[in-house]
Computed example of a mutant assay.
Amino acid sequence: MKRFDLDYYITGLKSQNNVVLAQAITLVESKRKTDQEIADQLLNEIVKGSQPSIRIGITGTPGVGKSSFIEGFGSYLIDQGKKVAVLAIDPSSQKTGGSILGDKTRMETLSRNPQAYIRPSASGNTLGGVNNRTREAVLLCEAAGYDAIIVETVGVGQSETLVNNMVDFFLLMIQPGSGDDLQGIKKGIMEMAHGIVINKADGDQAKLAKQSKKDLLSALHLFAPSETGWSTQVELCSALEKTGFDLVWQMVQSFQSAMRSNSLFEKNRSSQNVSWFEDRANFGILQELVDQPKLSALQQELVLKVRQNEISVSKATEEMLSAVKELLT
């Protein structure tokens, strides 16, 4: 990757240059120490003048039509005068670490729109169906003038708390009559979702989708009231027939207005920043410890003993933590 100075990125983002935006995201994803130093400076500069935006996280079981929905919904938002950035996460291979990164081909129409930016990234080893630099990518997209940021996750079942902790509005997508799918979705994500969209509410499935909406609303009444006072809403949509996007957007806007009226919108973002700091700090501290020659050698030794059943996992952990405490004293 070609190296540029800090001014290059700041100027490019301010001028809403998508080439520079792509380079900036690549910069923050880089593991090179020199790149990380510039990336940290860049993020510190852009956070001071962050633009108003709405961050929307979208999750759902595979096959529910997330990409088709996002393409249609994104196009609808552009028609409403929004600039739309999509951060689409593809699952990484556990064997090779590679990823197909096919979201641009699945959102062909939206990717050609000059008011849209689509960035596919591999999830890597990060839980929650997101990339470990997704938060940084969101900030960079906002600095480049995008006021609607959509984060598409791999799917449900990993750690939706991580996704919810970086967006303003969390949307769960399901299919008509997906009772079996709902059984596999943890209650936590149902409570966490600010809105639920039943996609593919068209053709023969239209009637089934309406019944699914009634069933969902009945089930949601059994949940404890949200601390924010917001009640999860359910809407029907057909990405195929391009219907229901207006209802989904009204739902998002209603949520945003309700949260801003009692300052919960800003408080939520502040809490997310604190969580982000704690995550980065904890990871950095752990990395610094692991890089210590003495600890690294001990870790390799204990790994070998655990593999050969010469020591229990609990005992190995105890020895490792004792070495850490000794190093810190």
Rank of each mutant, 00 (worst) to 15 (best):
R55N: 11
N44V: 02
S218H: 11
K210Q: 08
L87M: 08
A143S: 09
P114A: 05
G97T: 02
F245K: 07
S271P: 00
N199V: 02
D35V: 01
V234C: 09
K294D: 03
K31L: 09
V156G: 01
V163T: 14
Q250K: 15
Q256V: 13
G284E: 11
I196F: 12
P114L: 06
I189S: 12
S231T: 10
K315E: 09
E108L: 14
E142G: 03
K210S: 00
Y146E: 03
Q272G: 04
A258T: 05
N268Q: 15
V197F: 08
N262A: 01
L220A: 04
M251T: 06
L264A: 06
S68R: 09
I311Y: 12
M107S: 03
K267E: 10
K210L: 06
L171E: 01
V324C: 08
G155C: 06
K66R: 12
S99T: 01
E278D: 04
T153F: 13
N17H: 09
W249R: 13
I46D: 02
L302V: 01
V248M: 14
I70Q: 05
D246F: 10
T61E: 13
D246T: 01
V47Q: 14
M259N: 01
K267V: 03
F245H: 09
Q233H: 09
G203D: 06
I189Q: 08
I185Q: 08
S312T: 10
A39C: 02
R55F: 13
I56A: 09
Q272T: 02
S270L: 14
E318V: 00
G60Q: 09
M251F: 14
K187I: 06
G155M: 10
A209G: 00
E278M: 13
M259D: 00
K186G: 12
A281E: 04
G124Y: 12
K31S: 07
G74D: 02
I70W: 08
D35W: 11
R135N: 07
S271A: 11
S53T: 06
K31V: 01
V86E: 06
